[in-house]
């Protein structure tokens, strides 16, 4: 099942961002990734803002998965 595989991948990638295993990603967590990813802090902030749905300052696993799903072209969590 592609969706299950997708969600599993999303979960793994989420954990790469949520190093402290808080269960959510903040803008600060995102900006810390600049040492590991070839993106600027501005780009990481832009990614955060485009993934975040409700503008509460936290990126949840659901929001993250939806963003990845949209990127890959698979509809998740309808």
């Amino acid at each position: 099942d592609v969706q299950v595989e997708m969600l599993e991948k999303a979960r793994e990638l989420f954990q790469l961002c949520d190093k402290e295993e808080k269960g959510f990603i903040t803008k600060l967590d995102m900006q810390r990734l600049q040492s590991e990813l070839p993106l600027t802090p501005e780009q990481l902030e832009a990614v955060f803002e485009s993934l975040e749905q409700d503008n509460n300052g936290y990126l949840t696993p659901v929001e993250f998965s939806m963003g990845l799903g949209k990127f890959i072209g698979i509809e998740l969590y309808q």
């Binding site: 793994e12 790469l16 990813l37 485009s50």
Partner: peptide
């Protein structure tokens, strides 16, 4: 205008982000 900024994000940066994460994931055992 924050909306313009968000629009400028576009898929390029997101693609870069996810691709980098994916290659990082597969790069480590």
């Amino acid at each position: 205008d924050p909306n313009m900024k968000a629009g400028a994000t576009s898929e390029g940066v997101l693609a870069n982000f996810f691709n980098s994460l994916l290659s990082k994931k597969t790069g480590s055992p």
